[in-house]
Design a binder for these strands. Structure first.
Length: 597
RNA sequence: GGCCCCGUGGUGUAGCGGACUAACAUGCCACCCUGUCACGGUGGAGAUCGGGGGUUCGAAUCCCCCCGGGGUCGCCA
């Protein structure tokens, strides 16, 4: 090794030791005489002193050093002179008196600061990701991710799971997300696909008798990105045989609880994890992944306003819509422009608009509300009694602000869910030191797709229906529940899983219901149906979004901050400038010709 | 594909129709400086204000188009 110690590990106990360090120049302080170099490596920073009187040559070399030069220093660890200790540095009690030094590699001036944690345009960071990763924030995120994965491996190993790798080159399944395709050289006109998840493979591992499987699995989906979605991402994928839903939920609860305890002990977790049905989540929060760190629950006001004279409400209801709202506590004093802002938000989400009802400017008992205190465009179409009923249902006091949206039920829920999130943020209702994990259960198995005119799986076609609902598959498929569950945390879906179908008869029936004819079923899923005929055990599992979990633990806003080399919003890799054209020879070998478009 | 936001020296920002010959901080270069630690001091270089077109006597500033980046809806079984 070119070094004997790490910069960050030195302390009083090393005083007198002869050490050789190697790392990057974090900062240089040149006093004309003495030169101080803050030398940085992965473990931390230590101050090196170059004295022209005791080490002339050494001092001359040091005067050439600039930020991010890679240098090596030999010298003696010394206690700093009294009064010059630096309490801000973990190594601040000591310094290294340089006896010998050399520049291993100079550096151009970096395009942005390495030694300061200030915001830099993300595209620049991504182009020079190798420099960005030197910064404290990114270094810590990489370390955190390592520790999270290590914890998961150890945890599951202790529970008897074994890690199995599954192929990256696999078969395209046109349902679900768009596949990334890989052309085959040996089979002209045929393609592999990259896995959207190892779903079918892990089920086959259950048929294989693995019983408890997990994998840190890379997954690929050719869909548009989001702050929490990348074209390639990582799942903690796991599957168990002979389990019931409760077994899996208990495992997850233990996994997440001890994960936070060990990795982020300063954060709190609510235990046991709340459980909501899908219907409850939609009714109270308008989304299946609510941030449960605060209330602000949605209330359905349809029945109250159905007889009102307010045409916006009445026509929405007449068109089969509904009217729901939330209460923003203490926001009765919101100004016109603040209300306009909220209205704009609502409209940008596709809703017609937002009806606001201010319940006066001072907080107090609802009984004291008078019609004079109420400010709203709807006020003259509503009775005081109706307003009080609405306020009561939304848990409002005087001085609060009611935010009401009318229209298509799905749109109303979506809009209010976003409004709730926005108000929660504005009013700082979410405790930043709290993780509220929760399970969402009782999802519908199927969803009718108007565009394709057929049933689609809410989760995926391998999810088992509730036993008692199986007969409904033939009559009212929309009423069938699936043995599916999601894990959510602070407003993010961080995982979803299910108990699977393990008999070929039921699996075939589901495929049929999804609109596949026998031939298509055979071509696409024949391998699964056949496998299920060779003693497939009952099984189930879950896939957890590792990137999102690490993002939450790191307190970051996007998963890009916890991925070493992420793609940008346009799915490009700015470090490598991928994707890129390939040569005509490469195309020919793959039997491909580009279309002129 | 739709909607919203952003683009000014290397970096981060200010300026939002005339006093801009574009400001501030930091970085960079040179010189001075032996106890600093975001060292300090003096001086210097560095920007056709993302690109194109238009409005105007006059555009970094207003309008249109394009490009790049971010957020989001659709999409993500």
């Amino acid at each position: 090794m070119l070094k004997s110690h790490s910069c960050g590990e030195l302390s009083k106990k090393d005083v007198g030791a002869k050490v050789t360090l190697a790392g990057w120049v974090d900062r240089r302080r040149d006093h004309g005489g003495l030169i101080f170099i803050d030398l940085r490596d992965r473990e931390g920073i230590v101050q090196v002193v170059f004295n022209p009187e005791t080490a002339k040559l050494c001092h001359e070399i040091a005067s050439e050093m600039r930020n991010e030069y890679v240098v090596r220093v030999s010298g003696e660890v010394a206690l700093r002179p009294q009064g010059t200790e630096n309490p801000k540095l973990p190594t601040g009690d000591v310094e290294v008196i340089a006896h010998n030094t050399d520049i291993l590699n100079p550096s151009k001036t970096p395009p942005f600061y390495i030694n300061e944690d200030i915001e830099v345009e993300e595209s620049l960071r991504l182009k020079y990701r190798y420099l960005d990763l030197r910064r404290t924030r990114m270094k810590e995120n990489l370390l955190l991710r390592h520790r999270v994965v290590k914890f998961m491996r150890d945890f599951l190993d202790a529970k008897g799971f074994i890690e199995v790798e599954t192929p990256i080159l696999i078969k395209s399944t046109p349902e679900g997300a768009r596949d990334y395709l890989v052309p085959s050289r040996l089979y002209p006109g045929k393609f592999y696909a990259l896995p959207q998840s190892p779903q079918q493979l892990k089920q086959l591992l259950m048929v294989a008798g693995v019983e408890k499987y997990f994998q840190i699995a890379r997954c690929f989906r050719d869909e548009d990105t989001r702050a929490d979605r990348q074209p390639e991402f990582t799942q903690l994928d796991l599957e168990m045989s002979f389990v019931e839903e409760e077994d899996i939920l208990n495992l997850l609860e233990e996994l997440f609880t001890s994960l936070v305890e060990i990795i982020k002990p300063e954060m709190r977790v609510i235990k046991p994890f709340p459980r909501l049905t899908y219907a409850e989540a939609m009714e109270h929060y308008g989304t299946d992944k609510p941030d449960l760190r605060f209330g602000l629950e949605l209330g359905d006001l349809t029945d109250i306003v159905a007889q009102s004279d307010f045409s916006i409400f009445r026509s929405a209801i007449a068109d089969g819509g509904k009217v729901k709202g939330i209460c923003a506590p203490g926001c009765g004093t919101y100004t016109r422009s603040q209300l306009d802002e909220l209205n704009k938000l609502v409209q940008s989400l596709g809703a017609e608009g937002l009806v606001t009802i201010s319940l006066g400017t001072a907080g107090g008992n609802l009984n004291a509300l008078t019609i004079e205190m109420v400010k709203s465009v709807a006020a003259r179409f509503l009775t005081l009694d109706q307003i009080k009923q609405m306020a009561e249902r939304l848990g409002a006091k005087t001085g609060d602000l009611l935010l009401i949206v009318a229209g298509n039920p799905k749109l109303v829920d979506m809009t209010l869910s976003e409004l709730r999130q926005e108000m929660g943020h504005r009013l700082k209702l979410a405790d930043p030191n709290l993780f509220v994990f929760a399970f969402i259960q009782n999802f519908p198995l199927l969803r009718w797709d108007d565009e394709t005119g057929r049933w689609e799986s809410e989760h995926h076609p391998f999810t088992a229906p509730w036993d008692e609902d199986v007969p409904l598959l033939d009559t009212t498929p929309e009423k069938v529940h699936g043995k599916h569950y999601d894990v959510i945390c602070n407003g993010y879906e961080i995982g979803g899983g299910s108990l699977r179908i393990h008999t070929s008869e039921l699996q075939r029936k589901i495929f049929k219901l999804l609109g596949y004819n026998d031939e298509e079923v055979e071509e696409r899923f024949g391998h699964m149906l056949e496998a299920f005929q060779y003693g497939a055990p009952p099984h189930g599992g879950i896939a957890l979004g590792l990137d999102r979990i690490v993002m939450l633990l790191a307190g970051e806003e996007t998963i890009r901050e916890v991925i070493a080399f992420p793609k940008n919003q346009s799915a490009a890799d700015l470090t490598f400038d991928a994707p890129s054209p390939v040569t005509e020879e490469q195309l020919a070998e793959l039997h491909l010709r580009l279309r002129n478009e």
